[in-house]
Write a protein that binds this DNA or RNA. Structure first.
Length: 403
DNA sequence: TCTGGGGTCCTAGGACCC
DNA sequence: TCTGGGGTCCTAGGACCC
């Protein structure tokens, strides 16, 4: 049966949510109406554009570029900081509203989701619901969304990306040729900056040209990715709306250091902070990790990562840190200035109580108890209330956010 | 005042086994 | 002395998303 899919996309999410918060606080300007961006912290060397207002876009400012570049394009640009807590709350409000339509909602990101409306409505009624959602969000939550209406996720997502803001677009199969094929290939979902030049070399510039390219040729050139891009260009996507909660497959934390670090003891201290946070999140999901991964970025933006499979799955801070520390030592060349350090755990499996009590060692049980005491305190008094990485000599600039 | 952070999925090559 | 393939697991790195 034909599926009925909506894709809801918040317009300039971070910036809109910040604008509303500022208005609520009594601000007399709406930053959506001036050249403005949400940006990272330049003093911590993360000064990039995370969201932009329509007026900033007119100056040619793009998401991801540096604030320095953005200001060159528009000297009067206003820059506002990130506020994760606000974004999370705003996102939750949107979901509460959408749940009134269906509980088959896939939270694709903080500001995007798919709704499977197949069991609810058909034809014009579906389109009317899309308009209703669009209006209600604007009236009740004071920000705007684009809504894409289609028979699969890919087409719904492509539709919501048409003219913005505050619009409802359909992209049904009989509209692919007129609405999607004239678009530049870079507009197609999953085609990024590395693939576009390769398609250009094949004289492929539009999605339509990609759709008419021989599928086998694309597979030969791009492997699985080639098959996927051909299907997407032809509007084919059978993936389901994943509305059930799924635990993560990997958990990681990384941080750009305020200044380059070339002492391994300092790197170790930061690595411990990162590990504590990662394993804390791991335990809160009741998961165990099988693989530990450490990443380094040099001041010249050269990335390196090493990973290792653990002898057995664990969530103990001590065991995972011991592995991470080894990985750090084996990959760090003494004296290299490091800009970013990160660690993550992968191949996560559900923690099975029985299995654990049968096979775990005395020491790991002891570690587990220690971790639990720390976790409980963190949960009660906030993440930064307790840490075993006591002294940190980086002007306290490496402060991890509460989780 | 140059260039975030958190994810998922895929590929290539080496080790090892049969 | 010369030298097969298939399968699986592991690791490093890359592409892409928001």
């Amino acid at each position: 049966m034909e599926r009925q899919i909506l894709h809801v996309d918040v317009n300039n999410a971070f910036l809109s949510w910040t604008a509303i918060e500022m208005l609520n606080q009594g601000s007399d300007i709406d930053i959506r109406e001036i050249p403005s961006v949400i940006g990272g912290d330049e003093s911590r060397r993360s000064g990039i554009v995370l969201a932009k207002s329509p007026k900033a876009k007119i100056f040619g400012i793009t998401t991801g570029e540096t604030l320095y570049q953005a200001r060159m394009k528009c000297p009067s640009l206003k820059v506002y900081p990130m506020n994760y807590k606000l974004y999370k709350e705003s996102s939750n409000k949107l979901y509460q509203l959408l749940f009134q339509y269906t509980d088959k909602i896939e939270r694709f990101s903080i500001d995007e989701c798919f709704l499977d409306m197949t069991d609810c409505l058909m034809g014009d009624a579906l389109l009317n619901k899309a308009y209703e959602i669009n209006q209600r969000v604007k009236n009740e939550l004071k920000f705007t969304v684009n809504v894409g209406v289609a028979h699969n996720k890919l087409l719904a997502k492509m539709a919501s990306d048409f003219t913005k803001p505050d619009r409802v677009h359909t992209l049904f199969e009989n509209e692919i040729e007129t609405k999607m094929w004239p678009l530049h290939v870079s507009e197609l979902f999953m085609l990024g900056r590395k693939t576009i030049p390769k398609l250009y070399n094949m004289r492929i510039k539009t999605i339509g040209e990609l759709a008419k390219t021989d599928k086998q040729l694309l597979i030969k050139k791009f492997g699985k990715h080639g098959a996927m891009m051909w299907e997407y260009a032809n509007g084919i996507d059978n993936s389901e709306v994943q509305y059930k909660f799924e635990k993560p497959k990997g958990i990681g934390n990384s941080t750009t250091l305020p200044v380059d670090v070339n002492e391994i003891t300092k790197l170790e201290e930061i690595l411990l902070l990162l590990t504590e946070q990662v394993t804390y999140r791991l335990r809160r999901y009741n998961l165990l990790a099988n693989v530990v991964n450490v990443q380094l970025r040099t001041k010249d933006f050269e990335d390196k990562s090493h990973q290792r499979k653990l002898p057995e799955a664990t969530s103990n801070t001590k065991d995972i840190y011991a592995e991470a520390k080894e990985l750090l030592h084996e990959m760090y060349k003494n004296g290299t200035p490091i800009r970013l350090i990160g660690m993550r755990v992968d191949n996560l499996v559900e923690k099975n109580e029985l299995q654990l009590s049968l096979f775990s060692h005395e020491d790991s049980e002891k570690q587990e108890k220690i971790d639990k005491v720390v976790d409980d305190l963190k949960q009660k008094y906030g993440y930064n209330s307790i840490t075993r990485a006591g002294k940190l000599n980086l002007d306290n600039k490496i402060k991890l956010k509460d989780v």
